[in-house]
Amino acid sequence: MATVSLTPAKKAARSTVALKALMAVTGLIMLGYLIAHMYGNLKVFSGRASFDNYAHHLRDIGEPVLPHTGLLWIIRVVLLVSVILHAYAAIALWRRARVARGGTKRYVSPKARRGVQRSYASFTMRWGGVIIALFVIYHLLHLTANVIAPGGAAGSPYQRVVNGFQIWWVVLSYTIAMIAVGLHLRHGTWSALTTLGANTSAAARRRINALAYVVAAVITIGFLLPPFGILLGLVK
């Protein structure tokens, strides 16, 4: 490759580090969305009217500056672009890493397969990411399009949620997905902030890791409260 003639800025833009930064930024955008989404979901605990009003209100935020459902569509486009760029970068780096490490059978010795200090979450990023992507499709077909409607289809968002989560296997499928998300965010939050330059000392490292644990726990538990609340009959 004739990289000699490129300016430093162009070389930098084509690097694996820039690709990682793209992953970090798109990942953090999706994380920001997840926090808002989780907060919205918790409104099922304040009843049907509150939840359905909230779902409805999302469609007219920003009016009349934005058209009806305008903000919703902006969010959808930003998220779709983020998912695509994030997955593109993940796959590009995944393939590169597989070749670089010298294939799947790296060391014959079975004695240090789990590494020296690495976290369990760091093992789950790639296949966990695939599970999350598949889950997102399933989830949109379930609660957005309502094409998959276990427990019966419904016009009211509240009713869709309640119908679905009265069924144990629906709750189980969401539980598995949210554990995958939690693990992804445990390593992902840490990794994103480090990629963007925040790992500046041992103390910073401790703080970023603590933050990553909190983010992962809050998201996982926060998302799982409504399904379990419904399954256990606390929300009807």
Binding site: A12, A97, A100, Q117, S119, S122, T195
Partner: peptide, 23 residues
């Protein structure tokens, strides 16, 4: 130019991307 050149060469040699695992 140093950081961009060295990282470009790192990639060119076929090394993988860092995922901040810390091994």
């Amino acid at each position: 130019s140093r950081v961009a050149g060295m990282v470009a060469q790192h990639d060119e040699e076929g090394f993988g991307g860092c995922t901040n695992i810390g091994e």
